[in-house]
Amino acid sequence: MLGAGLAAPRSLRAQEAFPSRTIEVVTHAGVGGGTDITARMMMVQAPGVFKQEFLVVNRTAGSGAQALQYLASKPADGHAIILVTQTHLLTQLRNPSLPQFADLIPVARATADPQLVLVRRDSPFRTPQDLVEAGKQRSLRFGGTHVGGVDHVTIFAFGRAAGIQRPTLVPFRGGGEIVINLVGGNIDTAVVNPGEAEAQLRAGELRPLISLAEGRLDAFRDVPTAKELGIDVTGYTLRGFCVLKGTPEDRVAKLEAGLIEAMSGPIYKSYLQNTGQAPDSVAGRQVWGAQLEQFHKDGREALQALGLLRG
């Protein structure tokens, strides 16, 4: 991209020790949003590892669009890293003028929060089979975030893999509202992170039917995964770091090692544990890159099928 091209001579010049100045962490979340908190938790121990200050830059507009633009406006020298979520990938797909997925280098994963398919306590769906059978008879009402958002893609992929009628998305403003409407009986089911519905799961007001994780979750040993049921779909809320393409390889490696070290410290570990996220959330660029690649593909297919891709 343009930013990378302009910055090339500067990054060649900068052969001295890296990092040489404050590292900016760009996020699309407002101060206090879930992703913002992830960034700030990582940053508690990062300055000690890198011997440099860290600064969160919140660029909230356009579901990640502005954050991507901000990143592209910075030299590709590793001093600006972006906290990427699946939202960014969908925004890129829908806006070809933005820096695309191919313009980013994955560095390290920060969180991978699996999702569960939940129903309320007195729901007629007692088993996963009940849900799938009913879904073949009529379109199920799924709660989720906005049309064309990450939940929409996951729900669409779930519906297709399970061979049910295309689910009806009832869009809400966030996880809390989805949980309330699920308990209140306004929707049939929803795909939710366990942390968001922790109180309701513990009180037995909501029941998990299917887990969208790769393997069985420790906290939900007896909840079958979709894959076990022959529904080939996974659902995670992913957050992780990327840098702009053109960043020198040695710096990417240094960032990867350093960020993983910072996120292996006690503060970040206890943050993961207390928010009910898997301790193996932190992963290197191999795993993280592959996962982003997969979602990029799924997202494109889903948006195309839903008629949400322009041009």
Binding site: M41, A199, Q200, Y271
Partner: peptide, 27 residues
Amino acid sequence: ALGIPGSATTAIILAALIVQGVRPGPH
């Protein structure tokens, strides 16, 4: 009582509680 934030500020207070290992809810 529900672990569901009632405003932007309580969303952050909720995060603070959770980070401290307190899990809000009826229990």
